[in-house]
Design a protein around this nucleic acid. Structure first.
Lengths: 242, 242
DNA sequence: TCAGTGCCTTGACTTGGATCAAGGCAAGTT
DNA sequence: AACTTGCCTTGATCCAAGTCAAGGCACTGA
C-alpha cells in the first residue's frame, strides 16, 4: 500500500515566518500569542510521495497543518475498499475528525513531496482556552470543514461532481494566493474518481467533454480553467457559491 | 414551501433539568458552570411540523440544540433543487456550518412537533474561553459533525447507502437511550431519498427488499430492525463501525 | 360513508455511468 | 533504439437506478 512514515528534512520554519499565517491556525493572533503557539508546534516534517502521516485506528495525539504539497485522507471499509475522504492543501488542517473518537478515522498520505506541522491536541486545547483568538480560529476552521464535507453530498451527477471538485480546488488555490484558473491537480485520475465515487474512465471522458465544450484545458495534471462561469453554472454552484 | 418561523409554548426547562445533558453542550460541566451556560441559552422554542428555524443566507447569530423531535437542514442550489444535508436528533447541534461564513448555509425545518434551544454564538465563544470543559465539548461535537458528514460519502451503492442511513439513525437513537432496533423514522420517503441522492421509488423498493430478506420490518415510518448484523455487513460498516 | 388528499408502492421503460478489454503515450531502464 | 511500467484514453457492453405512469392505502373532513 504505502510506505512507512518517516520525517525527512525537518526545516523548522516558525509560524511567524511561514506565509500561511493568513489561512492557518495563527490567523488573528498577535506576535506574543503567536510565539505561544509556536512553542507547542512541531514545525515541519517532510514526506516523500505516498508516505503515511498517521494510520486509521491509531490513537489520536496530534492534528496536522499542511505546510507544503498535498495530503489525502483515506478510509478502508469492511470489504477492503478504500475511499478518499479529502485532499488537503497548505494552510488546511487534517485529523480533526479524530478529536471526538480519540483515534484517527482515516489514514493520511502525502501526494508528492509535502510537509506538515504537527500540533499536540491536548496542548492546543489548553492554549485555546488561554487565547480567545486561537479558539475562535479553531472553531472557524472546524466550521469550514463541516461545510466542505457537506457540500460534497449535494451534487450527484458525474459532470456536476467533477465540475464542483475543480471549482472547489480552484477557490482554495485562489485563497492561497495561487492562480484560480491554472493549477496542478497533483493527484492521479484514479484518486479523483475514487474521491467522487466514480470510475476513472468517467473522469477521463468528462475531462475530454469539458475540453471539447471549451470549459477547460487539461494535460496530465496541468489544468487550466477557460470558462469558469460555465463551469459554475454546470456545478449548480453548490460547493462554491459564497 | 414552509411556514414562517414562530415560537410556540416556550417551556423554559433548564439544561440542568433537561435529561439531554449527557449528549448535548452541558456534558462535562459542573453545576456552577452549567448555570453560566443556562444564562446564555434561550431555552426551548417549540415548532409545529414544517416550520422554519432559520433560512439560508440569513446572518448567523445563534447555533441551535435540538430539545425534542427532529429537524432537517436543507440547501437549495442554483437550479432550485433542494438537498437535505442532514437530520438532527435531540441533543444534537445544528447551524455549526454557519460559524465560519457568518451566515446560515442551509434552512432548518422542523419535522413534526419539535423544539430547540437557541444559543447566541458570540456569548458561547466568550463563555467557552472561560470554561475549558465547554470548549472541549464544543470541539468534540464539531469533530463528530465532521465525521458524520464524511461517513456519508463512503457508501455509493443505493442499498449500502440506505442500510448505512438506518444504522446511523439506530446508533444515534441508542445513544439517546431509545431502542436501537425499533424507532420512528419521522421523515417521509421523499426526504430519505433526497438526503441519500436517490429516487423515492428506489427507497420504497429497497425497503421491500430488506423486508423480504428479513433484515427489517417497516410500516410507514415505524421501523423495526430484525437482523442488525446483516444490515451492518451490507452497509460495509462505513458509517457506523466504532 | 364517501370523496379528497397526500404518501407510498408497483410495473414498464430508459439511461447514465460502471465494467471489461484494448490501445496509446510519456518517462525511465537496459 | 527497443523494452518496461504506470497512467490515461477510447470503445463496446451491461446493469443499477432514474423516470414516467398508474394504482393502493391511510388519513381527513363533510
Amino acid at each position: 500500500m504505502s510506505n512507512q512514515n518517516s520525517a525527512l528534512n525537518p526545516s523548522s520554519l516558525k509560524c511567524s515566518q511561514c506565509g500561511l499565517g493568513k489561512l492557518c491556525l495563527p490567523l488573528g493572533l498577535d506576535s506574543q500569542d503567536m510565539s505561544q503557539l509556536e512553542a507547542i508546534i512541531d514545525s515541519s516534517s517532510a514526506y516523500n510521495d505516498s508516505q503515511t502521516v498517521f494510520n486509521a485506528n491509531q490513537s489520536f495525539e496530534r492534528i496536522y497543518a499542511v505546510k507544503s504539497g498535498m495530503f489525502k485522507t483515506v478510509v478502508t471499509d469492511a470489504n477492503g475498499n478504500e475511499h478518499i475522504l479529502g485532499f488537503h492543501l497548505p494552510g488546511e488542517l487534517f485529523g480533526l475528525d479524530a478529536i471526538y473518537p480519540k483515534k484517527y478515522i482515516s489514514t493520511a498520505i502525502s501526494l508528492g513531496t509535502s510537509s506538515v506541522c504537527g500540533i499536540n491536541y491536548t496542548d492546543l486545547e489548553t492554549l485555546s482556552s488561554k487565547l480567545p483568538s486561537l479558539q475562535k480560529q479553531l472553531f472557524n476552521l472546524m466550521s469550514k470543514e463541516v461545510h466542505t464535507s457537506q457540500a460534497m453530498s449535494v451534487e450527484h451527477v458525474a459532470d456536476q461532481k467533477l465540475a464542483g471538485f475543480i471549482l472547489a480546488l480552484s477557490a482554495r488555490y485562489k485563497q492561497r494566493g495561487y492562480s484560480e484558473t491554472r493549477f496542478n491537480l497533483a493527484m492521479p485520475r484514479r484518486d479523483i474518481a475514487n474521491h467522487l465515487n466514480m470510475a476513472a474512465e468517467t473522469v477521463s471522458r468528462l475531462f475530454k467533454r469539458f475540453q471539447q465544450e471549451g470549459l477547460l484545458d487539461i494535460k496530465r495534471t496541468d489544468l487550466q480553467i477557460i470558462n469558469i462561469d460555465a463551469l459554475k453554472r454546470l456545478a449548480g454552484c453548490a460547493s462554491v457559491c459564497e
